[in-house]
Design a protein around this nucleic acid. Structure first.
Lengths: 271, 271
DNA sequence: ACCTGAACACCGTTCAAGT
DNA sequence: ACCTGAACACCGTTCAAGT
């Protein structure tokens, strides 16, 4: 049973009630076409309240979500959170301004989804890091360096630090989501410190909780500085010193004076 | 020669041209009164283009500037930069929304003035600090700690870190002003490091420029975390560890393991 | 169903009018 | 002169209408 909607609308002037339209699904072929002219009605089972929704609808929604999110974190990584407008997001994603509301309910909803996405991506990136070094502190420092290095290459990482280093005003749900993302980041650093403690490379007497908070503050502070330099963020060589600083403060070994960063191996090495 | 403006306006319907009004000044008594009913015209010297402007006008402007600025940095310290609206500023300062434009040209103009003001106040506060400690590194650490401690008590300091840890979008002049304020802050830390270097308490081999950038990043990162906790910022005890970390990383002495913060003296002391 | 765009509210900004 | 507030533009948001 297929009914052309154009004809339906032409014949009945008031046929647009929700109860009728809830039964509409879209044919899969529409996803390929350019326009929206392929709407059909099918699978109607009168009186049961159950409706058939073809997979293509879910796909369409997923596509919209993905495009909007991608537009959002690109804008954020380029220009910051407050520069984002729904108009811009819609335009980049190939939709109208209203689409953000269709999919995420509000601008805040979009931002919450965006911070969760980039936070998850950051955590995935962090897990993928091949941290190098002879011991836990070496690997901690290597992790921090590679993590910050990623600012130059990963748009999602830049977006993450935009969220982590300066929240939006008066958006409680966003604030909660950002705090969660920051907590995940803190837990990650805490885990690395625990490993360093376990293998004896962490300076004895170091309070892990406090050290993790300090390191996160340092990394967010550095990321903040990289952002303010304009569009693209690079990891300035002046922050090699910050990594050296981490090693000095937390290593159990009385490190020699001359420890330098080896750009090839990504390690701090004695020289 | 005094002319009551009310009468002037009643008699001439089109007397409001700029050329006429440029000659008006306000009597000093107006500043004391509540309303704006005391406008007078005086000191007119026809054809010379020179006009007498009584001090009370300058005072009035200065008062307006001060009230608007105070309203601005209070709002910023409480709710952040993007939460500030000209409506709010006007209301707090006892003016209309348009007054910000009268005095500062734009919201950005107000923000630039605000960041300069709180930056200058921060520098003044920093100079007033009685840094304690036996040597340059001790005094550096003491400075950092007292500086961050001030977040809990000084509204201007909270406003400063709102600016320093997360700039506004698409406001080039504001960005420049914030960069300048951050540079002043960096120079201050650099000077303290230089003193530590001079008296031999700074770990040899430390690059002062890089160390200053690292320390500023750490301090801004900590201030950022204090802000996100809601209204009032306090210096959490977990950041005692960050100060200890500074000492470990930059002191030339191989410090003993147990160094703790003495809340009374404001110093890190061996225990 | 998804999507759009007119309509509204809010706020930054301007500027003619008021004192 | 200082100051106000109506008017406009822009953007977040809603929602009736279009497909």
């Amino acid at each position: 049973m297929r009914v052309c909607l154009r004809a339906c609308i032409a014949n009945t002037s008031c046929c647009r009630s929700a109860s009728l339209w809830r039964r509409l699904v879209m044919s899969a072929s529409c996803l390929q076409g350019g326009g929206a002219s392929g709407y059909i009605r099918n699978g109607v089972s009168e009186g049961t309240g159950m409706y058939v929704v073809r997979k293509s609808q879910a796909e369409r929604r997923a596509t919209a979500d993905r495009k909007l999110l991608t537009a959002a974190y690109r804008i954020i990584s380029e220009s910051g959170i407050s520069a984002l407008t729904c108009e811009d997001v819609g335009k980049r994603a190939g939709y109208s301004r209203g689409q953000t509301y269709q999919r995420f309910g509000s601008k805040e909803g979009l931002l919450v989804a965006a911070v969760r996405h980039v936070s998850a991506e950051r955590a995935r990136f962090a897990r993928s890091l091949r941290r190098r070094g002879a011991n836990g502190v070496d690997r901690l420092v290597s992790h921090c360096r590679l993590h910050l290095d990623a600012l130059a290459h990963h748009v999602k990482m830049r977006a993450f630090f935009r969220f982590a280093s300066g929240p939006l005003p008066s958006m409680p749900d966003l604030e909660t989501a950002v705090l969660t993302a920051r907590q995940v980041y803190l837990d990650e650093i805490t885990a690395l410190l625990s490993q360093a403690s376990a293998d004896g490379s962490l300076r004895s007497g170091t309070d892990i909780k406090s050290a993790a908070a300090t390191i996160r503050a340092l990394l967010c502070g550095i990321a903040l500085e990289c952002q303010s330099g304009g569009g693209l963020c690079t990891f300035p060589s002046s922050y090699d010193g910050a990594m050296e600083f981490l090693r000095r403060a937390y290593s159990s070994k009385a490190s020699g004076r001359g420890v330098g960063y080896d750009g090839v191996s990504g390690l701090n090495v004695p020289v």
